[in-house]
Amino acid sequence: MKLELAGTIDVLIAFLLAPLLPGIINRVKAVCGGRRGQPLLQCYHDVIKLLKKGAVYSRTTSHVLRAGAVIAPAAMVAALLLLPVPGRRAVMSFTGDVVLWAYLLGVARFFTMAAALDTGSSFEGMGASREAFFSALCEPVLLLVLLLMGMHSSGGPVAALVAVALIIVLLSENSRIPFDDPNTHLELTMIHEVMVLDHGGPDFGFITYAAALKLWMYGMLFSAAAVLPVFRPEGWLPQTGVFLASMVVFAVIVGMVESLMARLRLTRVPQAILAGGALCVLAIAFALR
């Protein structure tokens, strides 16, 4: 295991800038739809407002609901220590650290699902059920993507395949549009958002912030998948510059996908994830040659 204390700066950058990503995505969507859209910093306002509130709990709920809201951000922060900015080292790095990273996200998801079931609401049960289904299918694709990224293959078709598979996984895992709609809080279409219906106050602030951190981390993965096969930036400033630029590109891509695509029918979602798996298998075949 290697420790890199300079990496804490990257963690701080993530803490500060993570809520900006949803803002950029929403702005892109607004521009594409011919609207002005919400402020870029909306997510910051939301989190701060929520942290200032009191709380209301259903009498059905137990400590599990309260624990879920605490464990999710904690798992995200722990996971953040394992991801590097392209060209640098993460705070902690060892063989197989990406596996731990993926499973830390799994912890957050498990407790969010448990918290949803804790409310006894059938809507939240439905959300948890779908989340469980899609994330179980995403898991092998994500692990294969991480495996492929760890192989440090050259550019070309392999890198493109990996990037596309990664985008499929990250859209599904972050409840973005072709898989889930982050804006429809009260529709039966949604998956992730419905699970947190009964969270309020600071708990919901934690959950929102954790979701932003998760999106940020997937952005870091995307940045690594897109930048590293092309070149390896040297020096702190260029690395940071390239990284932040790629994050903006990432947010724009997600925003464009959301603007251009309709939500998939639920029966189509597993197929899309399976297609991501097929891309990974293909990429492995090419990468090993």
Partner: peptide
């Protein structure tokens, strides 16, 4: 902090 609300069922 309210602990005895009913689960909100839309």
């Amino acid at each position: 902090v309210e602990h005895s609300a009913v689960t909100w069922d839309c």
